[in-house]
Simulated scan of single mutants.
Amino acid sequence: MADYHFVYKDVEGASTQWDDIQRRLGNLPPKPAPFKPPPFVPADDPDLRPKSKDWIDERSPEELEDLEDDLDDDRFLQEYRKKRLAELRETARVARFGSVVPISGSDFVREVSQAPPDVWVVVFLYKDGIPECGLLLRCLEELATRYPETKFVKIISTDCIPNYPDRNLPTILVYNNGAVKGTFVGLHQFGARRCTPESVALALCRSDPVLNDGQSGNDSSRETVIEGVRKKFIEKVVTQHEEEDEYSSDD
């Protein structure tokens, strides 16, 4: 006769009265604690955090573009996002160049001849060790920061033009739309060794609106540029006089 055994298994964690008696007598191990899952805690999602002005300030222009639909319910943040995006675009537009960039002969076509038609390029031909080159370079470096939408590059003269004579240095070539628009040989057109950023700026803009500070909108006429240069020159002179007067009063 077969030996049949029936094993009763209750819900996990449940116990029978018989089991309880056996545990009290020490015949069974203690009853295990019933399984209890840990409480649910949603994962931290940065996209679900409340948005603030500081949070928007940390976003890149691309991220701000993607946020347009996410901020529909918050009118203030939506307006702030648009304002911040406009500021970033304006900063990127104005800070187009802003320095005198060294280039080599192999870079010339790409950096100068193939520059966009709306960009004026000031090419500085120089050689180290020539004092006049250093003097003019300092003027150009200041102009590059003042007029960040004009492209300034510098190149060793013989890398640009083989066998270019040192007696012609420094030399400035002005390019626009792939063509030479102006040539300045030596310092005499800028006031010789007394040249200043202002005198260089006025000479560069004598016939064309070479310099662009990015603040004149679509008005980049020669007259507008020259007027801007004169205004900056007057501001500089006034500032220098104020500093001299303050220094004299301290004495």
Rank of each mutant, 00 (worst) to 15 (best):
T239N: 09
R96L: 14
G129V: 12
A201V: 02
A92I: 04
D47L: 07
R222E: 14
N168L: 13
Y126M: 12
L28R: 09
V121T: 14
A14V: 05
K51A: 10
P148W: 04
L71C: 02
F152A: 10
E12Q: 12
F124G: 08
V229F: 14
V210M: 08
A144V: 10
K232A: 11
T145A: 15
R24D: 04
I103L: 11
P131S: 11
D219V: 01
C205T: 10
S99D: 13
V185A: 05
D251W: 07
S221K: 03
N212P: 02
S249Q: 12
L135V: 15
M1W: 02
S104Y: 02
S52V: 00
N177G: 11
D44I: 13
E68F: 02
R138K: 15
G186K: 08
P50T: 08
V210F: 05
D251Q: 09
F76E: 15
K127F: 08
Y175E: 12
K83V: 00
I234H: 04
T183P: 03
I156V: 05
E65P: 01
N176Q: 15
H5S: 09
V100T: 13
P148S: 07
G134A: 09
F184K: 08
V94C: 03
P32G: 06
D57W: 00
V210C: 06
E243I: 06
S249D: 14
V122C: 13
V210Q: 07
G26S: 03
P32R: 01
E111S: 05
R222W: 02
V225T: 15
V121W: 09
L211N: 07
N177I: 03
G191K: 05
P131F: 12
D70N: 03
S248W: 06
T16S: 15
Y147L: 06
F233S: 10
V112F: 10
R49G: 00
L140E: 10
V174K: 05
R24P: 00
S207K: 12
V112Q: 10
E63N: 01
V229A: 14
R89I: 09
E65C: 07
H241R: 13
P148I: 03
L48Y: 07
A86Y: 00
R138T: 04
T158K: 10
I234Y: 04
G214H: 07
G217E: 05
K231Y: 05
C205F: 10
D128T: 13
A95V: 00
D70K: 12
R230L: 15
C205L: 04
L143G: 13
I234F: 02
A86H: 02
E132W: 01
V229M: 11
A192L: 05
K154W: 01
K9A: 07
F76D: 14
A2K: 09
G129N: 09
